[in-house]
Simulated scan of single mutants.
Amino acid sequence: MSRKQRRSKRAMVRIFLTVILVGLLTACGVAAPLLNSQLIEKAIAFQVSQTQKQLSQQLNQPTPSVQISQLRIKKQESSIVNKLPTYHLQGTYNLNLEFPSRQVTQKQNLFDVYLQSQIEGKTWRLLIPESTTEDAKPIWRSYLIPPLY
């Protein structure tokens, strides 16, 4: 085997080992939590629950339980808000409100949510933009979405 062939073989082995090491290191990295339909449903349910809680207090009625189903994402955009990855999602869902004496179902409700992955990569937050003037950057209210188990 000539010297040139040995160098070529060594180079091939190095490339192969480099590819294997990069693959292993990538697999060991910290992955961000998965943006999935359960998470989106949980965020929408949180938003609806907050509204229902306020209405129930004003009407002096019990707060209904909230269930989200038939989630359909029609638009998804990614951006950075306060130096963290944020996803703007729009679409439709079905809503089931369960009151003590009756059940209400609404179909094809529109949703428009902002979800943000946190820096440690384990949790998500629901962001709600505050109304501001057209020229100013929005101010965001942020709510922790409990982890999915």
Rank of each mutant, 00 (worst) to 15 (best):
L89F: 08
K53M: 15
F16Y: 06
Y143R: 07
V81R: 04
S56C: 03
L115E: 12
I139K: 02
Q118L: 02
L84K: 11
D112V: 09
K122V: 09
Q116T: 01
Q54G: 00
R7I: 13
A136Y: 08
P33T: 13
I145L: 14
Q106Y: 04
L71E: 01
L35Y: 10
N109E: 15
L95S: 02
I68Y: 07
G29H: 12
Q47R: 14
T92M: 04
L126F: 06
E77M: 09
T105Q: 14
Q108T: 04
Q118R: 05
L127H: 00
S101H: 01
E120K: 13
T92C: 08
A31I: 12
S37W: 03
K137D: 02
A11M: 07
L144Q: 02
G91Q: 13
E134Q: 03
N60P: 07
V113Y: 00
L110P: 08
R6W: 12
P146I: 08
P62I: 06
F46K: 08
N96P: 11
E120C: 04
V22L: 07
L17E: 07
E77I: 12
Q90C: 05
K83H: 15
Q50W: 08
A11E: 06
F111C: 09
A43G: 03
L110F: 10
L84T: 09
P62R: 08
R14E: 07
S69P: 03
Q76D: 01
Q116Y: 00
L24T: 02
I68F: 03
R141N: 10
Y149Q: 14
T123K: 10
I73V: 15
S117T: 01
A45N: 04
F111D: 04
R7W: 01
A27M: 13
T133H: 10
S131W: 01
T26Y: 03
E77S: 03
R141Q: 12
K75T: 06
P64C: 03
G91M: 07
Q54W: 11
I119V: 09
D135L: 15
S2L: 01
P100N: 05
E77V: 14
A45S: 04
G121Y: 03
G91F: 05
S49L: 08
W140E: 02
T105R: 13
W140K: 00
Q61Y: 11
A27Q: 09
Y114T: 13
N60E: 14
K83D: 13
A32R: 08
N109P: 12
S56V: 02
S2G: 09
K83Q: 13
S2W: 08
I73Q: 03
S69T: 11
P33F: 10
T133P: 06
P138D: 00
W124S: 12
Q70P: 14
R6M: 11
P146G: 02
A43I: 04
L115S: 02
N60Q: 09
S65W: 07
I73A: 09
L55D: 03
Y93W: 04
L148T: 15
